[in-house]
């Protein structure tokens, strides 16, 4: 623990990088997964393509995806994009399912009623389907966020930033305290992000808690 207090500035610096490297992919992945998940909830054919594809993406080790990315998109080996792109891919793979399941679970009679009231499709999606799908979607988002925060560290194995740097440096210099500092930082960040999403979910979906 002493390492954190003795190296306060460095700790904040890696925390900021870690946060950036995990939050950007969550947001990007979430945004991408909404149209894809909507498509999958609509069309069985889309599901047949998207779901197995998402499953295969998961089987690729994160370290491999991180080292392959620069070759595929032509970035430099130490570019942060090399972590952001793979984590975005994982987030999309995870969230497509959540979004599709959540949208499919919206009661048919509610949708029918909204159509009968004359909602146009986009407006209906934004004001009816999507809000009703939020609880399940946010549950998926919590899993994706926690696993992203834990996965960012892998980037350090190829020299990228975040708490993972404390792991690799601690390993090379035999400094257990430094590794522990990174581990604690990761877990605290994950717990905080998870709690925050839980809170946002509750605020956005007050109706989901009525009668419990």
């Amino acid at each position: 623990m002493t390492w954190i207090f003795e190296n306060w500035e460095r700790f904040w610096e890696v925390t900021a990088v870690h946060l950036r490297l995990s939050v950007v992919p969550v947001l990007a992945g979430f945004a991408l997964s909404i149209p894809l998940g909507w498509w999958a909830s609509r069309s069985p054919k889309a599901r047949l393509v998207l779901f197995p594809f998402a499953n295969v993406l998961f089987t690729i080790p994160s370290i491999a995806l991180i080292v392959i990315t620069p070759v595929l998109i032509g970035t430099k080996i130490l570019d942060e994009i090399n972590v952001i792109v793979p984590l975005t891919v994982y987030t999309v793979a995870l969230m497509i399912r959540s979004v599709a399941d959540a949208l499919s679970a919206v009661p048919g009679n509610v949708v029918a009623a909204a159509n009968a009231m004359g909602f146009r499709p986009l407006r209906r999606f934004l004001t009816v389907d999507f809000p009703l799908a939020l609880p399940v979607t946010i549950a998926g988002l919590r899993v994706a966020t926690v696993s992203n925060i834990s996965m960012v560290s892998v980037g350090a194995l190829v020299g990228l930033g975040g708490y993972g740097q404390l792991f690799t440096e601690g390993y090379q210099t035999d400094n257990t305290d430094k590794v522990l500092a990174g581990l604690i930082g990761t877990v605290v960040l994950a717990v905080l992000a998870d709690g925050l999403l839980l809170l946002i979910g509750r605020l956005l979906t007050p109706w989901a808690r009525v009668g419990r």
């Binding site: 926690v146 696993s147 925060i149 834990s150 996965m151 560290s153 892998v154 350090a156 194995l157 708490y163 993972g164 792991f167 690799t168 601690g170 390993y171 035999d174 257990t176 590794v179 522990l180 990174g182 581990l183 990761t186 877990v187 994950a190 717990v191 998870d194």
Partner: peptide
């Protein structure tokens, strides 16, 4: 789930 596997691996190696 929140535990980074890399850190656990390195810690146990150090110990």
């Amino acid at each position: 789930r929140a535990l980074p596997t890399t850190a656990v691996l390195i810690l146990v190696v150090l110990w």
